[in-house]
Amino acid sequence: MSQLLELTTKEEMLAQLPIIQQLYPDYTNEIYGDLLDKMIPHNYKQLIVIENNTTIGLAGFWIGTKLWCGKYLEFDNVVVHQDFRSKGIGTIMTNYLNQKAIEENCNMMALDAYTTNFGAQKFYMNHGFVPKGFHFIKYLKH
């Protein structure tokens, strides 16, 4: 049976480095820790799914407020362990965070998906997400 936990401390999140490395293989404890030091003070948290003492899914999330939408919950860096994909883990995390957004009185949920990640796009559309616009970026460091 899967267990869901919300992580709020750097130490808890640092322990998730192995699954984070499935998204970012070059991340070390130091790189990851430095990023967490900058993110946690801005309300960054993580949701993990544990099965048999192994993290099989992780979704970072933030609750914030923007002028155009008011209060929102944003998914950030969602990863399902490569051995557990297509087993409903993404749905478990999405449903949990959907309920959290409702309980937190958010107006909407948001996320970014790469334009080339058609599987993620299909997954999120099947869960009620719709494209709202473009997320433009300009690289300043190469």
Rank of each mutant, 00 (worst) to 15 (best):
Y114M: 07
R85L: 06
D37T: 10
E6I: 15
T9E: 11
Y139D: 09
T91N: 11
R85W: 01
Q3P: 00
L4S: 09
Q46A: 13
G88V: 07
L7I: 01
H127W: 05
Q46H: 05
Q3T: 14
M13F: 05
F84G: 01
N95H: 13
N29Q: 14
K38H: 12
E103P: 02
L67H: 04
K122P: 00
E74H: 04
P18F: 00
M93K: 03
A101I: 10
T54G: 02
L67F: 15
K132I: 14
E30K: 12
L97S: 03
P25A: 01
E11P: 00
F61L: 09
C69M: 10
H42T: 13
T8N: 07
G70F: 05
A15T: 03
Q82A: 15
N95G: 07
L35D: 14
I20T: 09
W62K: 13
L5N: 13
F129A: 00
Y96F: 15
F84M: 08
S2N: 14
Y27A: 02
K87L: 14
E12W: 08
A59C: 15
P18D: 03
H142C: 02
G90H: 05
E74G: 10
I19D: 11
V79E: 00
E12F: 05
L23Y: 09
G128K: 07
G70I: 03
N107V: 02
I31S: 14
Q16H: 04
